[in-house]
Each structure stands twice: as C-alpha cells, then as structure tokens.
Nucleic acid binder design. Structure first.
Lengths: 200, 200
DNA sequence: ACTTATTGAGTGAGCGTTCAATCAACAAGG
DNA sequence: CCTTGTTGATTGAACGCTCACTCAATAAGT
C-alpha cells in the first residue's frame, strides 16, 4: 500500500501532527479525497501502519533463535539482527520514536516490544548465570536495557543526529558494545585486580 | 516566565504541533493574545525555551567536576549528576526528545549537547587508559555512548513508557550500569578466564 | 451495467496571529 | 490633592489560512 509507505516517511520526518493529508496525497501522487477511500481517518493510517509494520513478531523471532556456542557470539548475532530489523523498518522506528511522546497507543506498542525484548533476553542471561558463565551479581535487566539502549541510541543518532553526532558503523558498535558489556572496561592485570576485589 | 513553563509541559505531552496557543494561554490563565505581547510566535516560545533551559552549560559543569579517586566513583557521581540534571529539566528533556524528529534546531542543540558529553568523558577515559587503568582496546566512544545511552533510555522509559516498561530506580541503575561497564558480565574465574583469552 | 477508483470543490472547525479597546499603575504638572 | 498623560498588560473579536473530512460527479475496470 503506497499510502502507508508515504505516510510512514512523512510521519517520521514531520511528526504526525505536522503531516497533513495533503502532504501524504501529494507524496502518493493522488488527490487528498482518495485517502478516505482507503482509510477512515488520519489516525487510521497510523493504526494501519503500526499493525502492518509490527515489531513484536520479528523481535520474538530474533530472540527465539537458538543461541550460539558462546555468550559473546550470541549477543553479537542478536545485536546485528536487531540493527537489521530496525533498518528494515527505519521509518517506522523513527516515527514511533517521535510519536511516543503524544500517542498512548504508540507508547503501548513500544512498551510491549521493549518488555518482550527485556524478558526474553533476561531469560537467556539467567540461564547463562546458572551455568556459571556470568557473574552472580549481574543484574540481567540492567544488562539488557543497556544493551538494547545502546543499539537504539546509536540507530537513532545514526538517522537523526547526524551530522552533529558522529555515526558509528554497526559493525564497530556491535563489537565494541558486546566486548564492553562482557569484559568490562577495567584493565584486568595486577593492580586493577586488587582494586576490583576490594570493591567486592 | 509562566508562559514558558506551561509551554514546556504541554510540548512534552502533546508535541509542538499538537499544542495550540489556546492550550498554552489556558494553562496560564490568560487570553491567547497576551502570548503575542511576550513572544513573536509559537516558534519563538520554543526558541526561548531552548535558550532558557540550556543543557550545555550544566553538562559542561558536571563534566568539569574534578574526578574522584577511582573510575568507578567518578562514573557513579557523573551518572547521578546527569540523572539529576535531566530530572530538573524533565519537561525540557522530554519535549526535546520528541521534537528532534521534526525540528532541525532541536536536532542541532541535542547534537551539540551529546557531542560535548562524548568529548569530555572520552578525554577522561583516555587519561585513565594512559594510566593503565582501563583496557588498551577499550573504545572510549562506545563506552561513553553506551553509558549516556543507558541513562537517557532509562530516564525516558521512566517518564514515558511506564507502566508498560518497568521503572528502574536511579540508584539501582547507576550502580548496576557502572559495575557492568567496568567489570563486565563475564564470570572472572577459571574457565571463563580461559575462554576470555582465546577470544583475544 | 455495475463496481471500484479517483477527483476537486466545498464545509466547518481549528489554528496562529493581529489589533482596537480597555484597564491598571505610575509619573508629572497644576 | 487632583488631573492628565504615558506605558505596559490584557482582552476578546476578528482575520486569513490550513486542516481533516465529505460527497457528487466522473473515469476506469470488469
């Protein structure tokens, strides 16, 4: 449906309220009245958009993928898959990001997606904890929210804050992020190890 | 200036385009025409808002604070200060977050703030690297963007996604985040250490 | 012939903004 | 002390424009 595509793009650029039916019709090369042949209202377009470009099924799919041999590999793959999903639905993601401010429906949808992401990945992390691969004192929720947070932040900065904030290529982001979250920033050798222990 | 306060709140709730002059006037208990006694236009209110509630000076101030004895303490303090700054300017932060979608001026301001944050904290991290306290292979930019990203994400979720996404108390967030980023999630003991080395 | 797609004019509401009129406070002059 | 003048604050009606939406008429497809 061309109308929906055009709307997604315009909503992501000008916001819902800042986009008129005329804008959308013009982008599609049709008369404004035609929009109402297919949709009941402007809000209906947004609803159709949200439904058509649902994140949840794809998110669940990504997170249901059988884990790799190591936590590092698993997270690396997840991060790439997530970035890719966001890119596929770029305009949708950007639009919803902007709209969550004023639209309770959008808030609900975003909330559900994020909560699912947190839940599923936390389960995986807890399993790894049980196997002794991760720290006992690791807070899975903090980990997950930091992980997803960094990916989203980078994605949005990539598309909305450039050229004011430098773009980090996904490859560099994913590798750097996974390493940072798994191994930390502190230098492992002698004195730092001493210090680490006194903190715990 | 009461008009600006009211506008900030409304912009953060309904967006710039979704907020009318009538809305603002009503919230102030004055007639719509009075707004134009003080401001040239609706956009002028936004401009005044951005100027009045500038983040940059405060951000610079926070980041110019002399570091603490350890990286952990320094980052902990920074994170709390940042959260506090966001809370003080809650409506401003939320409004700008929503507006960056459609307003180049807002993008510019946000971009500048973030870039400054990245620059200043990266400098600190690089200094710590030189002293051997942090890993040689640490990417400061990834660290910083993950750090700030997690704080912002949590802040916005706190205010916009609740009750769909659980709120993490700032104290838990800051402690969990700093620990995660410094010490990582991987269990330090024997087998995990072996695995860690084969990866590098 | 019938159905679907499409148009463009029109409608009423809402919007940002203007502005003449009014009011209140204060200062200056008689 | 009273009156007049000035200034800033405030109002609500009005203006021109935009907006989402409607709909009769026409075109296109089967």
């Amino acid at each position: 449906m061309q109308i929906v595509e055009a709307a997604a793009k315009l909503f992501s650029e000008k916001g819902f309220d800042g986009t008129s039916i005329d804008d959308i019709a013009e982008a599609c090369g049709v008369a404004p009245g035609l929009i109402y042949h297919y949709f009941d209202s402007k809000a209906d377009i947004l609803r159709a958009l949200i439904e058509q470009k649902a994140f949840l099924p794809k998110m669940a799919e990504i997170l249901k993928t059988p884990p790799k041999a190591t936590v590092e590999e698993t997270l690396t793959e997840l991060a790439y898959a997530m970035w890719e999903m966001l890119e596929e639905r770029r305009e949708m993601a950007l639009m919803m990001h902007g709209e969550m401010q004023r639209n309770p429906e959008v808030v609900k949808v975003i909330g559900r997606v994020i909560r699912t992401g947190i839940r599923l990945l936390s389960e995986y992390l807890n399993a790894q904890k049980s196997e002794g691969k991760l720290r006992d004192d690791l807070d899975p929720e903090i980990f997950v929210r930091t992980f997803w947070g960094a990916i989203f932040e980078s994605f949005f900065a990539h598309h909305k804050l450039s050229p004011f904030v430098r773009r980090i290529p996904p490859k560099r982001l994913v590798q750097g992020l996974v390493r940072l979250l798994l191994y930390g920033a502190i230098n492992p050798p002698n004195q730092s190890e001493l210090k680490g222990e006194s903190k715990r």
